[in-house]
Amino acid sequence: MAKIHVTTKINGEDAEFLCEPQQTMLDVLRDELSLTGSKEGCGSGDCGACSIIVDGRLVCSCLMFGAEASGAEITTIEGIANGDTLHPLQQKFLEHAALQCGFCTPGVLVASKALLDANPSPTEEQARYWLAGNLCRCTGYDKIIEAVMDAAAEMRGE
């Protein structure tokens, strides 16, 4: 089958790639574009390790076809920081020891960014429900929630 040619924007830069029609966006990111920060924990939309932001919406890239990226604006974990400066979420995750193995971390950070983009002042409960699609087996979520709440407060200038 012929490959599909896709032009898109990833982390603020123009990108183009060829993909098989059935290839997932996660595979495209990892295998075609060498953006291996997005992880595959399940391949079925249940773990959130592959989370990316597509046109402002939080998406499991394992459930999206690469071809669907055409004309979209995509943010992956590699595009969260501002050049050399970490995003406040990244900084707070480090300060709060909100990662142990770090495998869920890219997905959790992308999902947290999508949360704070949509709602700069989430309650703890809102943060917990928003992140319910991101499995972390190491931390028990405690320090993740602390870090998200702290980052939100800092971004609000508190």
Partner: peptide, 16 residues
């Protein structure tokens, strides 16, 4: 799979 083998998620839990 994680859909039917259900590990705890953030909304299941309080602070520990």
């Amino acid at each position: 799979g994680f859909l039917d083998y259900r590990v705890p998620v953030a909304s299941d839990l309080p602070m520990i």
